[in-house]
Amino acid sequence: MSNSAFIKTSLARKYWMAASGLFLIIFLTQHFTINFLSVISPDAFNTASHFMGTNPIVQFILQPILLAGVLFHFIMGFVLEIQNRKARPHKYAYNSPAANSSWMSRNMIITGVMILLFLALHFYDFWIHEINVKYIQGDMSGLNNSGNYRYYEELVAKFVDPIRVAIYVLSFVFLALHLLHGFQSAFQSLGARHPKYTPVIVKLGNLFAVFIPLGFIVIALYHHFGH
C-alpha cells in the first residue's frame, strides 16, 4: 500500500510535481548564472560552458536527470490538467474565479505550455546544435575555426534575429508568471508551511520569479542590442 500511495495518489502526484518543479528551479538558477556570465565576461562564459559541455558527470549524469525532470514535470502537468478537467465535466455558466484566486495559480498549464514551446525552440537553437557538434560530429574541442571557444559567438549569433529575441522575452514573461505561483506552491505541496517562514518563502519566491526571468530578458536584450 505504501508504494502505491507514494506513486499513484493525488497527493503523491503533488509531491513529485513539487519536487520536479523545485529541481527545475535549481537548474534555472544554475543556468542563469552561467548564461549571465556572457554579459559580464565572454571568457568566463566560454570556460564555464566548455566545462559544462564536456564534463562527463554533467553530460552523462546531470543532463539526463535534467531532461528526465523536464519531461516528467510537463507530462505530469498535462496529467494533472486532464484529471482536473475530468473532475469538473460541466463548467459554470457564470464564474468569477478572480475573486478568490490569482490568474497565475489558475493558469499554470498555459504558462507551462508557453515555456514548453519556448523549450522546443530553445533546444533547437542550442541543445540540438550541441549534441550535433559534440556527439554526432564528434568535435569535443569546443573550439571554432579560428581556435577560440565557439560558445560565446554562437550565443551572440542566436540573438541577432529580432523575432527570436521577442519570442524569448515573451517566454520569460510566462516563466515569471509560472514561477510567481509555482515557487511557493511547491513548498505548500510538500507541507512546508509555517506562520513565520511561509511569508518569507513567498517573498523570496516572488523575488526569484521576477528577477531570474528579468535577468534572462537582460541577457537576451543585451546580446541583441549590445553587438
Partner: peptide
C-alpha cells in the same frame, strides 16, 4: 475529486 494545485480559492 481533482488534484489540488494550491490555487487557494
Amino acid at each position: 475529486f481533482g488534484n489540488c494545485t494550491n490555487t487557494g480559492a
